[in-house]
Simulated assay, not measured.
Amino acid sequence: MNLNKFNAKRNKIVFYSSNDIGDKPILSKINEDMNFYKNTDIEDTVLGKAAAYLHLLAKI
């Protein structure tokens, strides 16, 4: 069982996990590569409005 607060999956396989809170797990990878999350599924235990907009921006 994965207890991370943020998980990114591609083809049902977790390729990135983070216990950081807020927008940090999203922004840290978008700053490196805008397409990092493209075509992924996101599991986030706390998703706010700002994070939702970042998901749209990153084409998640």
Rank of each mutant, 00 (worst) to 15 (best):
residue 1 M to W: 07
residue 3 L to R: 11
residue 3 L to I: 11
residue 4 N to T: 05
residue 4 N to L: 02
residue 4 N to W: 04
residue 5 K to A: 09
residue 5 K to T: 11
residue 5 K to N: 09
residue 6 F to K: 02
residue 7 N to F: 03
residue 7 N to R: 15
residue 10 R to Q: 11
residue 11 N to H: 12
residue 12 K to S: 15
residue 12 K to F: 10
residue 12 K to P: 00
residue 13 I to W: 03
residue 13 I to T: 09
residue 13 I to C: 06
residue 15 F to A: 07
residue 15 F to S: 06
residue 17 S to E: 14
residue 18 S to A: 05
residue 18 S to Y: 03
residue 21 I to C: 12
residue 22 G to I: 02
residue 22 G to P: 00
residue 22 G to A: 01
residue 23 D to F: 05
residue 24 K to I: 15
residue 24 K to S: 07
residue 24 K to D: 09
residue 24 K to R: 11
residue 24 K to A: 11
residue 24 K to V: 13
residue 24 K to G: 00
residue 25 P to K: 01
residue 25 P to T: 00
residue 26 I to N: 00
residue 26 I to D: 01
residue 27 L to K: 08
residue 28 S to K: 14
residue 28 S to R: 09
residue 29 K to M: 06
residue 29 K to D: 02
residue 29 K to Y: 01
residue 30 I to T: 00
residue 30 I to F: 05
residue 30 I to L: 04
residue 32 E to F: 02
residue 33 D to C: 03
residue 34 M to Q: 12
residue 34 M to P: 03
residue 34 M to F: 13
residue 35 N to W: 08
residue 35 N to S: 10
residue 36 F to L: 04
residue 36 F to K: 00
residue 39 N to Y: 12
residue 39 N to W: 05
residue 40 T to D: 05
residue 40 T to L: 06
residue 41 D to A: 13
residue 41 D to H: 15
residue 42 I to S: 04
residue 42 I to Q: 00
residue 42 I to D: 00
residue 43 E to V: 12
residue 43 E to N: 14
residue 44 D to S: 09
residue 44 D to H: 06
residue 44 D to A: 14
residue 44 D to E: 08
residue 45 T to Y: 08
residue 45 T to M: 07
residue 45 T to I: 15
residue 46 V to C: 07
residue 46 V to M: 08
residue 47 L to E: 01
residue 47 L to R: 00
residue 48 G to M: 05
residue 48 G to D: 13
residue 48 G to H: 04
residue 49 K to D: 15
residue 50 A to R: 15
residue 50 A to H: 15
residue 51 A to Q: 12
residue 51 A to D: 09
residue 52 A to P: 01
residue 53 Y to Q: 11
residue 53 Y to R: 11
residue 54 L to F: 11
residue 55 H to F: 12
residue 55 H to Y: 13
residue 55 H to G: 03
residue 55 H to I: 05
residue 55 H to C: 05
residue 56 L to W: 04
residue 56 L to C: 06
residue 57 L to R: 14
residue 57 L to W: 14
residue 57 L to G: 11
residue 58 A to I: 06
residue 58 A to E: 02
residue 59 K to A: 12
residue 59 K to V: 08
residue 59 K to F: 11
residue 59 K to P: 03
